[in-house]
């Protein structure tokens, strides 16, 4: 607990899938209130990096320290409650209604009574304009609706930070707008956010810091102003030329 304003510290994180080395030693810190956008070419390890933070993928080596506590197989469940995650393919639970998706975790983890959880869920559903969908199954929702429900599902646990793994990559342009404005709103309310995305204009607008990954390493990081207007490395210059 030596440094109380750092939420998350990552030291020399490595991850291989068999012989395929995806992350080659990542050092990273995330402080409360920061909004970090992770960029990089495909195959650079962005998603794997994000997924290692809450152990969706178990790191091969390195340390992840959350609120002064080293993440291990033993405390990972507790850590995950504080690190909400939003997936590219939404991952709403198909056999549960929207309401059940929202209330399952808080009730099962004894964080809220069922009544309180349903009340909170209804508030959030009203907020995103989908109160009528409470009793519906995910199959009857559009992609954008699913993703917004997935975001408020993560919010149900009042996490300290939210991890977004390409949240708009599987959506149509109109839905992308809806999802991005919900994320923007969370950002404005001071939520700590880490997001892997290909939405460059959104990245510019929302980020307090941009991190660029290439071949499993962070090769450049800085404020959006520095990163987009004064890139330091050739690799980033080349990347920006292609995507902007």
């Amino acid at each position: 607990m030596e440094n109380t304003n750092t939420d998350l510290k990552i030291r020399n994180l490595k991850k291989s899938f068999g012989k395929n080395k995806v992350l080659n030693g990542i050092n990273f810190e995330l402080t409360e209130g920061e909004r970090v956008v992770v960029l990089g070419p495909s195959g650079s390890g962005k998603s794997t990096f994000l997924r290692c933070i809450n152990w969706m993928e178990e790191p091969t080596s390195g340390e992840i320290i959350m609120d002064g506590e080293r993440v291990t197989a033993k405390n990972i469940r507790k850590i995950r409650r504080n690190l909400g995650m939003v997936f590219q393919h939404f991952n709403l639970i198909n056999n549960l209604t929207v309401m059940e998706n929202l209330t399952l975790a808080p009730v099962k983890l004894h964080l809220m009574s069922r009544v309180a959880a349903e009340k909170r869920a209804m508030e959030l559903l009203r907020h995103i304009g989908l109160p009528a969908k409470a009793g519906a199954y995910p199959a009857s929702l559009s992609g954008g609706q699913k993703q917004r429900v997935a975001i408020i599902r993560a919010m149900m646990l009042n996490p300290e930070a939210l991890l977004f793994d390409e949240p708009t990559s599987a959506l149509d342009p109109e839905s992308i707008g809806d999802v991005l404005s919900l994320i923007r709103e969370l950002a404005e309310r001071g939520m700590t956010i880490m997001i892997v995305t290909h939405e460059m204009s959104f990245a510019k607008e929302i980020a307090t810091r941009v991190v660029f990954l290439d071949k499993g390493k962070i090769i450049e990081e800085g404020t959006p102003e520095e990163f987009f207007n004064h890139p330091k490395t050739e690799r980033v210059k080349e990347f920006l030329k292609k995507v902007l």
Binding site: N54, M56, R77, K78, R80, R81, G84, M85, F87, H89, N91, L92, I93, N94, N95, L96, L104, A105, K108, L109, R153, A154, L157
Partner: peptide, 25 residues
């Protein structure tokens, strides 16, 4: 696999994930 991951990300136990998510599907 995304169904299991959803449960994991919410901090649910393996037993809960199996009983509430995987088994019914």
């Amino acid at each position: 696999k995304g169904q299991t991951e959803a449960g994991l990300a919410l901090g649910l136990s393996n037993l809960t994930i199996f009983m509430k998510i995987v088994a019914p599907q």
